[in-house]
Amino acid sequence: MGDRFVISCAPRDVRVVRVMRREVFVAWPWGTPDPTSRYRWDGDVSVPIDTAHPDWSQTPWRLEPRTGLSAGDRVQLSIPPTEVVVQEVLTFDEPRDIGRINRPTGAVRFDVGFFLWIDHDEPIEFSPPWNT
């Protein structure tokens, strides 16, 4: 806990599934719905597009463009370089059922409120913090 990193993820082309006033649902390119899960994840993930949305500061994921979108549009999903601080490291006795395959064996919670599941396919890169 307390370790600092810069996380990022290169832009990935994704399809817009649904547009709401302050968020956009995209077809998540990493992960497969778990048919044996008690949850029914449909493969879509909500990404806030409004900086006033409560989740804006709790997720590093961003879409470009953020405006003028309709279902079926293609957008770029990425994590711009973001400095984070590890707040908590969790390990699970049994892999956690979150509706997706692979079921994670742990998670890391960062100061921005973002959880990163361990054992998942998102290609998030870690690098040393800017002020080292």
Rank of each mutant, 00 (worst) to 15 (best):
Phe5Ala: 09
Phe5Gly: 11
Val6Arg: 12
Ile7Gly: 08
Ser8Gly: 03
Ser8Lys: 00
Ser8Asp: 00
Cys9His: 04
Cys9Glu: 04
Ala10Ser: 15
Pro11His: 08
Pro11Arg: 04
Arg12Asp: 06
Arg12Ala: 09
Arg12Thr: 08
Val14Arg: 02
Val14His: 01
Arg15Cys: 12
Val16Asp: 13
Val16Trp: 12
Arg18His: 13
Arg18Cys: 11
Val19Met: 00
Val19Ile: 02
Val19Cys: 00
Met20Lys: 09
Met20Glu: 09
Met20Phe: 06
Glu23Pro: 02
Val24Arg: 04
Phe25Trp: 14
Val26Tyr: 04
Val26His: 06
Ala27Cys: 02
Ala27Ser: 04
Trp28Glu: 12
Pro29Val: 01
Pro29Met: 05
Pro29Lys: 02
Trp30Thr: 02
Pro33Ser: 02
Asp34Ala: 01
Thr36Lys: 04
Thr36Trp: 04
Thr36Leu: 09
Ser37Trp: 07
Tyr39Cys: 05
Arg40Asp: 06
Asp42Ile: 13
Asp42Lys: 12
Asp42Ala: 08
Gly43Asn: 10
Gly43Glu: 12
Gly43Cys: 14
Asp44Gln: 14
Asp44Thr: 15
Val45Asp: 14
Ser46Cys: 15
Ser46Ile: 10
Val47Trp: 11
Pro48Gln: 15
Ile49Arg: 05
Ile49Glu: 10
Asp50Gln: 15
Asp50His: 12
Asp50Arg: 13
Thr51Cys: 08
Ala52Phe: 11
His53Tyr: 14
Pro54His: 01
Pro54Asp: 02
Pro54Lys: 00
Trp56Thr: 12
Gln58Cys: 08
Gln58Pro: 02
Thr59Gln: 13
Thr59Phe: 09
Thr59Asn: 13
Thr59Trp: 11
Pro60Arg: 00
Trp61Ser: 07
Arg62Phe: 06
Arg62Trp: 05
Leu63Cys: 14
Leu63Gly: 14
Glu64Ser: 15
Glu64Ala: 15
Glu64His: 14
Thr67Lys: 06
Gly68Lys: 00
Leu69Ile: 14
Ser70Trp: 02
Ala71Gln: 11
Gly72Lys: 14
Gly72Leu: 14
Asp73Gly: 09
Asp73His: 11
Arg74Met: 06
Arg74Gly: 08
Gln76Glu: 15
Gln76Gly: 11
Leu77Ala: 07
Pro80Cys: 07
Pro80Gln: 08
Pro81Asp: 11
Thr82Glu: 07
Thr82Ile: 08
Glu83Gly: 01
Val84Leu: 05
Val84Ile: 08
Val85Ile: 13
Val86Pro: 03
Val86His: 02
Val86Ile: 06
Val86Ala: 04
Phe92Ala: 00
Phe92Trp: 01
Asp93Lys: 00
Asp93Cys: 00
Glu94His: 01
Pro95Asn: 10
Arg96Ile: 06
Arg96Gly: 07
Asp97Ile: 06
Gly99Gln: 02
Ile101Ser: 05
Asn102Thr: 09
Pro104Gln: 13
Thr105Ile: 11
Gly106Gln: 10
Gly106Ser: 08
Arg109Lys: 07
Asp111Lys: 14
Asp111Ser: 15
Val112Ile: 13
Phe114Asn: 04
Phe114Ser: 03
Phe114Pro: 00
Phe115Asn: 12
Phe115Glu: 08
Phe115Leu: 15
Leu116Asp: 10
Ile118Gln: 13
Ile118Leu: 15
Asp119Thr: 03
Asp119Ile: 04
